[in-house]
Amino acid sequence: MYHHTHSTVGPRELPMARSMCWHCQSEVAGEYFCERCVKVQPVSKDLDYFTCLGFPRRLTIDQHQLETKFYELSRAFHPDFYQNKSAAEQTISLGNSAMLNIAYRTLRDPIERAEYLLDLEAGSVKEIRNSPPADLFEEILELQDTLSEYRAAGHASETESTLRAKLQSERNTLEQRQREMEATLQQLFVQWDTLQDRGEATDQARTERDRILKQMRENLSNRTYVKNIVSDLASTIG
């Protein structure tokens, strides 16, 4: 879908992928519109979502600022405002809007934002966990047993209500667990941002960077696993 850039250079320093206006061939100084002929310029597909929305590659983002920027760019790119323009401009408007929408959707959600950043920094990560995290192994196995007992139990039977209560308490425990994981993730996000802000290029900084990325990856996949179990549970016991 997009190219993975492994550079740690701040997005502001990234050269724009295009250098010439598609329409008047002048060098484009403006960010989204040619300064000379005012035609909309295609947002490069190589641009990452952070750069697209004008944010540094950080995991803490001010939601309000992000929304303001999204609205501002929507007003610049949306096809509604290109109805009377040339076919070429309409195509660019459509492509830019679609890119902007996916960028905003990804960055708006802290978890998706982190997954996306991991993807950018360390290559594809969305490994899908099939077995429970080690520290939850026993608990999950027991839960699976209770779940199948519950499904087999007769409607409105006594066994059913006992099992339901048990499952409900399991659900509370797991939800608590999910919140803890999210809190840990939040700490990792802050660590990441701090490290980036320092901008050091030492070996120590590199080791630190790899450690944070690794922990984030583990936490993210554990959280997804637990979250899926919780929503399964929720839909079973209603």
Binding site: P79, L94, A98, M99, N101, I102, R105
Partner: peptide, 9 residues
Amino acid sequence: NTTIPASAK
């Protein structure tokens, strides 16, 4: 519930 225009490759 993805904002449109939306695209996927």
